[in-house]
């Protein structure tokens, strides 16, 4: 299997496991989980320098999920990579789980930072990048944020600080799925993230958020950047790949029944067979 096929297969598995996990819970942040599945497949499909059997390996690339409510899709990727048993995914959001709604570094192997209060993750990632540089390490630090999250003022504090400190090993992945809890980002408080980060002195590119080859290419290009941190704006569709969510206006957080999950998983397999995965007829 070519690498791009393997990444596609991994992204499908990430989506399927996420949908099943959220269906077990009965509800969840399906929209923002789906929109970053392809990026996580690129990262965990070979690009991240990691050791699943040694989650705290000091030489690893770090990943901070700024939009901490999308923990479940990251848990799916981590389970598929072997950080913990797959059956943990059945416990997402259940009492006593090690896989809570929002990322918790003390509970989950492979979670580098606890997040959930939006806007803090990028600062944390900048701090990690600074600490690693002080130690003479060249690990990369990835941070995933949502486009709604960019409304948080702390994001722009971190954007200024990371540029000032020349944290070129910091790579920000912006999931521009264009929606937030209450509606469209452009209706609530929008603006072009790429222009904003460029104005803050970052290296910025835009890329189709489900084109895994293009995402991988841009991550590699960002890795070569010197002098400034990089932001990759992932143009995504919120909910893409979970058929029940794709045409829902309010798909930030949904009740998910067994029937919905079964149909969504079947649709993923149909699209894979038809060569239209993950977008199908969505775009």
């Amino acid at each position: 299997m070519a690498q791009s096929d393997a990444i596609t297969r991994l992204s499908a598995d990430i989506r399927i496991q996420t949908i099943r996990a959220l269906e077990q819970a009965g509800f969840g942040h399906i929209g923002g989980c789906m929109s970053v599945a392809d990026t996580l497949a690129v990262l965990y499909g070979g690009e991240l320098n990691i050791r699943p059997e040694q989650p705290d390996w000091p030489e690893r690339d770090y990943l901070v999920m700024g939009k901490g409510h999308c923990g479940p899709v990251l848990y799916a990727a981590l389970a598929l990579k072997g950080y913990f048993p797959m059956d943990w995914l059945n416990t997402v959001n259940q009492p006593g789980t090690r896989l809570p709604s929002h990322c918790d570094r003390l509970k989950t192997p492979g979670i580098d930072m606890s997040t959930g209060s939006l806007g803090q993750g990028l600062s944390c990632a900048a701090g990690i990048a600074l600490g690693l540089r002080m130690q003479g390490r060249s690990n990369r630090v990835f941070c995933i944020v949502g486009d709604g999250e960019l409304q948080e003022g702390q994001i722009w504090e971190a954007a200024a600080a990371a540029e000032h400190l020349h944290l070129n090993r910091l790579i920000l992945l912006i999931d521009e799925n264009k929606r937030q809890l209450d509606g469209y980002v452009c209706d609530v408080c929008g603006g072009d993230p790429a222009e904003k980060f460029r104005a803050f002195g970052w290296n910025v590119v835009r890329v189709c958020g489900w084109d895994t080859d293009a995402i991988l290419h841009e991550i590699r290009a960002a890795t070569e950047q010197a002098g400034a941190p990089s932001a990759i704006v992932l143009e995504t569709v919120k909910g893409m790949g979970a058929s029940f969510a794709e045409h829902e206006r309010n798909n930030h957080y949904m009740v998910i029944t067994k029937e919905m999950a079964v149909e969504a998983v079947a649709e993923i397999h149909r699209r894979l067979s038809a060569g239209t995965y993950p977008a199908g007829e969505v775009v």
């Binding site: 600490g131 002080m134 971190a158």
Partner: peptide, 26 residues
């Protein structure tokens, strides 16, 4: 000087960056 950072008038960012720094052992 190599262990001092004036992060400016951005207390929230400074606090979370400190958390990130502590994650790497500082």
């Amino acid at each position: 000087p190599e262990r001092s950072f004036n992060l400016g008038i951005m207390e929230a960012n400074a606090c979370s960056m400190a958390a990130g720094l502590s994650l790497t052992g500082f």
